[in-house]
Design a protein around this nucleic acid. Sequence first.
DNA 1: GGCGAAGTGGTACGGGTGTGCCAAATTTTA
DNA 2: TAAAATTTGGCACACCCGTACCACTTCGCC
Lengths: 202, 202
Amino acid sequence: MNPHPHQDPAPPGGHTPAQARGRRRRAALLDTAVTLLAEGGFAAVTHRAVATRAGLPLAATTYYFASRDQLLAEAFAQLVQTELATTRAWITRHGLTALPDQIAAADRRRQLGLWELYVHAGRDPVLQHIARRWTDGCVRIIAETLGLPATDTRVRLLYTTVSALWLEHVVEQRPLDQARTLLTHALHHATGPHPPATGDTR
Amino acid sequence: MNPHPHQDPAPPGGHTPAQARGRRRRAALLDTAVTLLAEGGFAAVTHRAVATRAGLPLAATTYYFASRDQLLAEAFAQLVQTELATTRAWITRHGLTALPDQIAAADRRRQLGLWELYVHAGRDPVLQHIARRWTDGCVRIIAETLGLPATDTRVRLLYTTVSALWLEHVVEQRPLDQARTLLTHALHHATGPHPPATGDTR
DNA sequence: GGCGAAGTGGTACGGGTGTGCCAAATTTTA
DNA sequence: TAAAATTTGGCACACCCGTACCACTTCGCC
């Protein structure tokens, strides 16, 4: 049932609430953290801001999360998961060529927050692990769409193009026309008549 | 003489020192800012940290730079410029295929700082302008190396691969082997027998 | 020389931060 | 029901931040 085989087993630290209301509150805090991250970058994700926005007392954040870092890490994980799911859904509905439209339609600030945390993961082993999950997830989506193994060079190559164009658009806000063209070319290369990439069978 | 035609004409705000020592100090502050950025991300670039590290009084930072944002922006510009120059030098010496080696040899934290600011540029129009310069610079290097116009689809496509692999390596620290393979393939596509930029294969 | 501008550096203010503390309220268990 | 565990929320501490202020020194120039 669950399409996500490797979930966080149980993030340590902080209190894992045993009561229903507590679980709801914890989730609300996490959602709020993601929202704030999107709105103002991860500098905006402070205990106070999250608690206030969620309509909860300040101490709630320190109660459910061992530290700000942990809050951020879990928010990142959630963001990765939801974005992956959204993208997968869009692509299975509209195909890979429609990805620019998805990018255009998506909440830019949210993407920005995702990439912010992604880069930040380069300094934090915990976040790094989640960042890898993001990359792997994207690759897997492409692989499944193309019906190729995730290790196929063509898949990996296509992913780099998608990824770079995505980031570039989110950051630099250039017109999407060129991105569309490039993606089409890249797709053609990946699905085209070439059999050259032939896989690392591993 | 100057190989960089579009320099910052004169960053407004802050004092542009008229005396030699002042200019040296300003430059030292900027260098220190870049160093701190590399060491601890841009949250570590504070007035106090920069001043202390540079061996200057706190007020020096506010004297030479109108605000922290301006300091950060100029540090970003400098980082972009030096990294671009380094990369260009490396590639003209060793060729595009050696790029993974350059990436491996480069100061990872410095790259991390660059990408951090790059993503941050998505929220700040001033930085966004510099971010575009970074992308354009990379594309131009590739175009010159390949002897193609910077608008060529193959160039742009190759850039996306390079860029994504670069970021991925810096953030996720995966082994470089696969990146090397991918880059080789991408290069082959770009320089290969195809004339695909306009007319599609055969 | 002297004098105005440029540069210097010590200090202070107001504000926001993460987090620890602890008594009260609430829920679960016995 | 009573007792125990969990959850709550108000508060305060210590710290660091950006920046303004201002007496002081040094420099460029007439």
